[in-house]
Design a protein around this nucleic acid. Structure first.
Lengths: 233, 233
DNA sequence: CTATAATTATGTTGTAGAGCACAAAATTAG
DNA sequence: CTAATTTTGTGCTCTACAACATAATTATAG
């Protein structure tokens, strides 16, 4: 399933968003400067408070960006799928990480020094626009999310999380079983509730035939109704 | 108090962040392309769902960026002080506005077409970096805020809001009265609570000698303790 | 200057959801 | 294979906070 080896050509293909805008000279710089790192399931990728030095590109696997709040509760701020970039915000903002990152599943990550990236941005405005656009999209999502998480009720938040997981990580061959198998705790941290309430609400959803549960496998049965529940909050 | 007229030179001085990185030719382009608009207290500046066409720079006054959630409650997502830029995210993300903006107070805003901005970004990487940095900072703030608003209790959220207002808009000559006079409703929308609870908690804070209230004037008396309340949530 | 509306204040009630406790099931370790 | 640990499931209690009601005060308009 997970590739054991990545050739340079493989990687370049994966990081096309960065690669494509570059000219030959710039490509030479980039090609020389990335490294590959593997992370096991649940392994931490970076921690809050650490100094940001590399942009990371998820080549395969699934990653969560989390933040611990007061009282020990953890919020999943956003999730990363292949091929997406992360871990660059703090460097650009001249800050330490305000979040942490961990792998949901075995993951392979391509690391590029931010120094190289900023140098390339200085020479290539298409690359600059790539980051401006990405940050702008993420900021919009964050704004939406703030309101959803604070205002929607438990059922609405869980329904939203399930639909989000489908949109983001997709489904299996049956077209309705979520491709990501999250623990109830992760699901709770994603939708801002306690683990007990995630478990409870999940089984209520199952009893209402909105979803079917088989361990960590979640099958979305009545997506329309889930969407309605998510929308009304 | 509020300037009746702004000369071109005045404005250029205000938008130094954009102006300074530019060369003569680029400056000529920008100088030709901005307009000034005034907004009355509580006047709407832009609405959710509208198309974003101009970046806005607040020259004087105070502005709130808000988002309506389910159930009619409104969240103040962020606030703008002079001289800060806003309203550009949606254009960069190729989206319509997901938020609305309104003036807390009479405000003067400089508008520059986003087409001009993107053109200038294409020629000037310092300008690109300005936006990358700004967006990165805002995204970090949004992430922090999500966790605060969802996890802290009412007292913690209100204390945080009061301290934030001091840091952001400053205080009067006495060094402790907030310079911004918000309605209880705005204060509630800023700290994610109902208006009644903002009123109630505010008067509890007053009875605990943490603050002093005189109508909409709020004086921070025991900032250390407020900070503690904000921190522990 | 009065009438109307908006804002502030305070008390009361109801409930969503946190915070346990405990058991069953599933993983992991030895 | 068995013991230990983690995850899942369910019930119960308690409280933070929303929701509503009503009055007092202040602002706005006609």
């Amino acid at each position: 399933m997970v590739k054991r080896e990545y050739s340079t050509a493989d990687i370049i293909e994966h990081i096309a968003d960065l690669w494509q805008p570059l000219n030959e000279e710039q490509r030479a710089i980039l090609a020389n400067d990335f490294t590959i790192q593997r992370f096991r399931k649940n392994e931490t990728i970076y921690c809050e408070g650490e100094k940001a030095t590399h942009i990371m590109c998820l080549l395969s696997g699934k990653v969560k960006i989390v933040k611990d709040g007061v009282g020990g509760r953890t919020q999943i701020i956003r999730v990363i799928k292949p091929v997406e970039y992360f871990a660059y915000r703090a460097y650009f903002a001249d800050e330490e990480y305000v979040t942490a990152a961990a792998a949901f599943e075995p993951s392979v990550i391509c690391m590029i020094p931010m120094k190289t990236i900023t140098r390339l941005i200085g020479e290539n405005h298409q690359l600059a626009m790539f980051f401006i656009k990405q940050l702008s999209k993420d900021l919009g999502i964050a704004d939406e999310r703030t309101v959803s998480l604070t205002q929607k009720h438990i059922r609405g938040r869980l329904a939203e999380a399930l639909l989000f997981l489908k949109e983001n990580y997709g489904v299996e061959e049956d077209e309705s079983t979520l491709s990501i198998y999250l623990s109830r705790e992760d699901l709770a941290n994603l939708s801002n509730m306690t683990t007990s309430n995630a478990i409870r609400t999940l089984s209520i959803f199952a009893s209402e035939k909105l979803i079917a549960i088989d361990g960590r496998k979640i099958k979305l049965i009545d997506e329309d109704r889930l969407r309605k529940i998510s929308k009304i909050g």
